[in-house]
Design a binder for these strands. Structure first.
Length: 313
DNA sequence: TATATTTGACCCAA
DNA sequence: TTGGGTCAAATATA
């Protein structure tokens, strides 16, 4: 008896939550068009930032709907350390088309990355790393396949960085890019001296790209895989471009990065970057633009650097 | 010929 | 059991 009332109460709550989500999503869509209209003529960068934020928000709504419908989170955390594959691993299906060599999976690893972070970007974004596609999968309940890329230097420099690229269902012109693992490689096109020792460790390097060439780039080495500018090859039709190019006009830009001093308090730069999102300040509490995940624990950069949001906005 | 991409199979985690 | 991440043979391209 009591259980029936509880059940009805739960359903009622779910319906209310769904209603609020629908309202929120509609508001976000309206806000997007409003903001992009107002920025369209004057500030392309703000317009792009708005787009990124809105995509994140809409994605959150979609995931929330999914959770409501399924009763569980759509994505499992990525912090599970993979069990290193032992040499004794053998093929169990020797009768299949492709026969496996006994050592084929000896190095098989999965989800062993220390951290991951997800970006929603347009395909025009550029990256300062070279990637090689190693797989593509159709994703359950997803309209578009997901492509898997690894760093070109995986074998020659044991770089473990990978990324996943999937076309956004909400906006097919955008791509959801998930970076996993950190770049340990030293791409010859990236000036190593730009990476101070304290910033070569994983999860401590974030790069707000600059509109400079690879030669004179003064990127903020903050996270070479998470916040670096995107590479053209996102488009699957476009082959990997071995020449890294830097163009982050659609991403958070810091003015005068050439004078960046990483010994300065990070909030100084975060403040500048986040200032560009000032139009979205009301959304900051729910945004994940600068969110990262380390060992499966999500946190925001302001937590990481002790940035007080109230001071920034 | 070397290198990159495609794609089916393998394998892990939930 | 199944979805999804990775491997590697086959194929494409420069």
């Amino acid at each position: 008896m009591g259980s029936l009332e509880q059940e009805n109460s739960s359903i009622d709550r779910i319906n209310k939550v769904a209603g609020e989500l629908i309202k929120g999503k509609e508001s976000a869509i309206q806000l997007k068009s409003l903001l992009q209209e107002s920025f369209a003529s004057e500030d392309q960068e703000k317009n792009s930032v708005v787009g990124i934020f809105i995509e994140e928000i809409l994605g959150s709504f979609s995931r929330a709907f999914t959770i409501l419908n399924s009763g569980k989170a759509p994505e499992a955390p990525l912090d599970q350390a993979a069990t290193p594959c032992s040499e004794e691993q053998e093929s169990k299906n020797s009768g299949k088309k492709r026969k496996i060599q006994s050592s084929r999976r000896s190095g098989y690893r999965r989800r062993a990355h220390l951290y991951s972070c997800t970006r929603i970007l347009s395909k025009t974004m550029d990256d300062d790393h070279t990637w090689r596609k190693y797989g593509q999968k159709d994703i359950f309940n997803s309209k578009y396949p997901r492509s898997y890329f690894r760093c070109t230097h995986k074998y020659d420099q044991q770089c473990q960085a990978t990324r996943q690229v999937q076309q956004s269902e909400a906006d097919p012109s955008m791509y959801v890019i998930t970076y996993m693992g950190e770049h340990t490689c030293r791409d010859p096109t990236i000036s190593p001296h730009l990476l101070p020792p304290s910033h070569r460790r994983p999860s401590s390097i974030i790069s707000f790209g600059s509109e400079t060439t690879a030669d004179d780039q003064k990127e903020v080495p903050f996270n070479s895989s998470c916040f670096s500018v995107m590479k053209q090859e996102i488009d699957e039709e476009v082959p990997s471009d071995p020449t890294p190019r830097i163009s982050s006009s659609e991403f958070l830009m810091l003015p005068d990065l050439g004078t960046f001093d990483w010994r300065a308090p990070m909030e100084q730069y975060m403040g500048i970057a986040l200032d560009q999102c000032d139009a979205m300040s009301d959304m900051h509490s729910s945004n994940s633009c600068l969110d990262m995940e380390l060992n499966g624990v999500s946190f925001e950069l302001d937590d990481l650097f002790g940035v007080d949001q109230d001071k920034l906005f």
